[in-house]
Amino acid sequence: MSNMNKTVIRTMELLYLFTDHAELTFQEIVELSGMPKSSVYRMLLSLEEMKFLEKKEDAKYRLGTIFLTFGRLVSSRMNIRQIAEPIMRQLHSEEHQAVNLAILEGDEAVYIEKIDEFQKVKLYTSVGRRSPLYGGACARAVLSFQSDQFIEQYLERVELKAYTNNTITDRQQLLASIEEAREKGYTISKSELENHTASLAAPIYNSDGKVIGSLSVAGIEIEFSDNAIEHLSKKVKIAAHKISEEIGYEKK
């Protein structure tokens, strides 16, 4: 075991102390951990700086509010995955195209579920993969239905990089694509992140009416004809709306 791994493990041991104690003084942490004071002092400084711990005015330590963020994220991921899974399976069994579930995280879309049992040609997308919000239907469905302010700020801080010859890297073209998505209620992409693939996606809304993710079907590009897109767009929008309703969304 490397020194770095030992340090990580010992740091985690300090954090675990707070599962049984709401607050602890420096001396209490030393006594409970059995570690040298110098080691505890250095680790506490790092944990404070990274917002994992907070030091109150009475010199007692407690878990930082960053854990609330992590908790909400894990909870929302678990809930949406559990809710979406049967709906995704139904869509996949009917269409035999890969069905993906992605959520918004920072400036990216993160794939958190994928069902492709009946798909003959497997695609690159996998659970845990991240995509830029401007690239591909699944990610752009998340971006397209954000507020105008969100989109404007996003475009100011993000460089539009090409992954294939079809990746949208022009700001005006991207804005036009967003406008089209809002009119149709879904996004479509062909060979934007990987050549010879296509995807169609619709947004997922939470109980506050905010888009937190998207549902998509994906396959090889040749299978996404105009007729197929017309058919799939209806199915995907219905499925995405079902998921939205299940997590508390009410269309006004």
Rank of each mutant, 00 (worst) to 15 (best):
Y154C: 06
T164G: 07
Q97P: 08
A181G: 06
S147E: 05
V158R: 14
P36E: 11
K37Y: 04
Y154H: 14
G136M: 11
M43I: 08
L174H: 07
T125S: 11
I238H: 09
T19I: 14
I188T: 14
L133V: 05
Y163G: 01
F145W: 06
A22E: 13
E13T: 09
I66G: 02
I247P: 01
M4F: 15
G248N: 05
E223W: 01
L104G: 03
E113I: 00
E54A: 11
L53I: 11
Y186R: 00
N227W: 10
Q153P: 01
L200Q: 02
Y61L: 08
R89F: 08
L45P: 03
Q90N: 15
L63W: 02
K252G: 07
K51I: 06
H196W: 15
A59L: 13
Q149T: 14
E48A: 05
S214M: 01
A176P: 05
I188A: 12
K235N: 13
K60W: 01
T169K: 04
A198R: 09
G209L: 02
K56M: 09
V236F: 03
T167Q: 11
T197P: 09
N166D: 10
P203M: 03
L215F: 02
S199W: 02
D116E: 15
I87E: 11
G213Q: 03
S177L: 04
P86W: 02
V99W: 03
E179P: 00
E94C: 03
T125Y: 06
I178E: 03
H92A: 11
S144C: 07
E49H: 13
R42S: 14
I87Y: 06
L45D: 12
T19R: 12
R140H: 08
